[in-house]
Simulated assay, not measured.
Amino acid sequence: MNGQDQPHGDACRLPGTRELALDPDQLIIDAHHHLYDRPGIRYLLNDMLTDICSGHDVRATVYVQARSMLREHGPEAFKAIGETAFAHDIALACDKAPPEVPRICAGIVGYADLTLGERVRPVLESHMGAGGNYFKGIRQPLAWDKDIELLNPAYPSHPGLLDDKTFRRGFAQLGRFGLSFDAWLFFHQLPRLTALARDFPSVNIILNHCGGVLGTRGYEGQAAQVRTQWLQNMRELARCDNVTVKLGGLGLPMTGLGWPGQGGTPANSQALADIWRPWIEPCIDAFGVTRCMFESNFPADRGSHSYCVGWNALKRIAQAATSDEKDLLFWRNAARIYRLADVSKTITQTPAIQDQTAAPKSR
């Protein structure tokens, strides 16, 4: 089952995870998170706000589909409109709240089955109607591997899906509506994504989670081989100017990266930074600082680390960057790529939400 849909332990509540937020004045747009209520895990607006209030200056977020709040009735293709409507209501409520409240779901990425071909057009129109100006694009998870235990049965895929003519006709509809595509797939599928990006240069493609690193099951003990193939594929993909990459998601169990004290002791940010750096820095080197953005991938990554600790780790990795480069990675790229123009205009004028966990600024 896809690691993003697996219940995780609540690392935020475990002892020893609490850290002071590093560089608390650094503005952040969290470029990737979910909200859902499932057996074993509940993560809704109040949970997100609680995490955000742990010391980092998170001003807005991008909501990404996760089969949550689906319509119970009607055609299957349109059930995901319920999720977009749910996120839209949260975005609207946050906009109407006092200015110091973060703009949760300022951008919404919904789900549509592009294998419908041209018939996906009314689905996209319904998403845009339900999400209004907050709706920015589509994510149809494409992850496939010969090991079915790594797959999420809710999102059927096959090795040739990105080459499928009907899928591509559906993908073409995104360009006609000016919508982006969030790509969640595994590292060995990246060459097919590169071919898709080259054939549709006008569609903005956003690669999720550093390109789908795998390190469990058949990939366990194969880190060197995986890294070599991953790096080669990422460098080739980076030649496509219409592709950007989200830096995060490395706390998913399927990455096999683990964290210190897996037997019950949560990670600290320095240890996470050391583990993540060999995967994040090559992404920045390949795509450049203008085509990368940091993400929390919460609550999917919550089994590895707390929200505060995860952002601390990312800040440690970016420590040597200039102030302008940090702004690009932490919020400006997300605002530009997801077309959050109104957020971008006001983000520097709104007071931060802080609590007593914030450490002194450490630039």
Rank of each mutant, 00 (worst) to 15 (best):
C94R: 04
S344P: 05
H34A: 01
Q65Y: 04
A80C: 01
I347G: 06
I205L: 15
N208W: 08
W259E: 11
P153N: 04
Q354W: 00
R42P: 00
L214Y: 08
A273G: 02
E325N: 14
Q6A: 14
D163C: 03
I138N: 04
G249K: 06
I206E: 09
T61M: 04
A334R: 02
A31I: 10
V243M: 04
L150A: 12
D5I: 11
R363H: 10
R71A: 06
H158A: 03
F298D: 07
A320E: 14
S362V: 02
Y111T: 00
A31H: 04
T50K: 06
C240L: 05
P156S: 05
G263C: 12
W279Y: 13
G160P: 12
D164R: 03
L179F: 02
A183I: 14
A91Q: 05
M234A: 14
C210I: 13
Y219W: 12
A143V: 02
E100L: 10
K326P: 01
P39K: 03
C240Q: 08
R59Y: 00
G256E: 08
L250V: 05
G82M: 01
I353A: 05
S323H: 11
P141E: 05
D47W: 06
L116Y: 02
T244M: 15
S202P: 00
S126A: 15
G131W: 01
T290Q: 15
E19Q: 05
R235I: 13
E236R: 14
I81F: 00
G310K: 01
H305N: 09
G110P: 03
D30F: 07
D241E: 10
P266G: 08
G218S: 13
T244C: 13
A60S: 15
L14Y: 09
I280K: 06
F177P: 00
A224V: 13
V58M: 06
G221T: 15
R277E: 15
L328A: 14
T84K: 00
E118L: 07
Q140F: 06
L257A: 12
A224N: 08
W331C: 06
D10R: 12
L22F: 01
R176Y: 01
V123I: 05
